[in-house]
């Protein structure tokens, strides 16, 4: 094994954990509302800017900023649902309308961020770049270790929440069958709100973590959203373990794919994988074959 390979592997896992977080949030929301919430991408961007504001402008410490930014992202998600999707639900809008609305929200909020912070690149990192740790010939920085650790902890929390708690079970019930959930006494609106809160907190967390690692800009959410959706689809749309698997798979494929070819091909690899999956295994790794996909 050579050093380049090991370094690419490290990069792959870091990218994968970010994709997995975005895909997880997307999936949590998709499971209850059953449409593609594109504005998820701008919640990720907002997470990064919340962190920037708290750390750089308000001088709060990292841990507190991380936590508060996730809370703010959750609130943003709930607000998007309350002021855009909820009124549409009341009118029994079609999925196409939801899709267009979610694009609209994406563009509106992205422009709002640009208006407030400017279009230029911002950076949270201050002081000199610290030397990373050497590990099997690769270099891994403290921030990268933080990204990996935080993602894994969030995934474990989400899993325990969904599997074990009463609220998590109710969310699974709504995902399986909203009518059946309603007749056993579960308020569907409440579960939708909860899923927006949790899903958006996860997107926010991904944005916060990436802001510790790289520069941020208002348009960063678009490609992150695409990667998250690709990860969710190849993992099996609606599957929670699938979202994690898809995220790491995509990170690996992209980063190991450029071992022999130029790095400019990264996005191309992601879309090639998506297309291959759509052709030969549209239900992804862990999705259910029978389920009709509604976008």
């Amino acid at each position: 094994m050579n050093n380049v390979f090991c370094q690419l592997l490290v990069n792959a896992v870091i990218a994968g954990s970010i994709y997995a977080l975005i895909a997880l949030g997307f999936t949590v929301i998709y499971r209850t509302v059953k449409f593609f919430h594109f504005a998820h991408g701008v919640v990720y961007t907002a997470g990064a800017y919340f962190a920037y504001t708290l750390i750089i402008s308000l001088h709060l410490n990292f841990a507190l900023s991380f936590f508060l930014s996730m809370v703010l992202a959750a609130i943003l998600g709930i607000a998007i649902d309350r002021f855009v999707y909820y009124p549409l639900r009341q009118q029994n809008a079609s999925n196409l309308i939801f899709l267009l609305a979610s694009f609209g929200v994406f563009i509106f909020l992205q422009n709002l961020i640009q208006l407030i912070y400017g279009a230029q690149i911002l950076t949270i990192r201050t002081g000199p770049i610290k030397e990373g740790h050497h590990f099997l010939g690769a270099v891994i920085t403290d921030v990268q270790i933080l990204i990996l650790a935080a993602s894994i902890i969030l995934m474990i929390f989400l899993w325990l929440f969904i599997q074990k708690t009463k609220l998590g079970k109710a969310m699974r019930a709504v995902a399986d069958d909203p009518v059946a959930a309603n007749v056993v006494g579960i308020n569907p609106e409440r579960m939708i709100r909860t899923s927006f809160a949790i899903g958006s907190a996860l997107a926010g967390a991904a944005g916060i973590l990436i802001s510790f690692e790289t520069n941020i800009e208002p348009t960063m959410g678009f490609s992150a959203l695409l990667k998250g959706i690709i990860a969710a689809i190849i993992g099996g749309i609606g599957s929670i373990p699938g979202a994690v698997l898809g995220g790491f798979f995509l990170g690996l494929a992209e980063n190991l794919g450029i071992w022999k070819i130029s790095a400019g091909w990264k996005d191309c690899i992601a879309f090639a994988i998506l297309i291959i999956f759509l052709f030969i295994r549209p239900w992804g790794f862990l999705g259910t074959k029978t389920e009709k996909e509604t976008i």
Binding site: K164, T165, K166, K169, A173, A181, V184, G185
Partner: peptide, 15 residues
């Protein structure tokens, strides 16, 4: 268990 959703305790508890 979901059939008893309305009477089981706290949302965050393990049913």
């Amino acid at each position: 268990e979901m059939g008893a959703y309305t009477v089981t305790s706290g949302q965050w508890s393990v049913v």
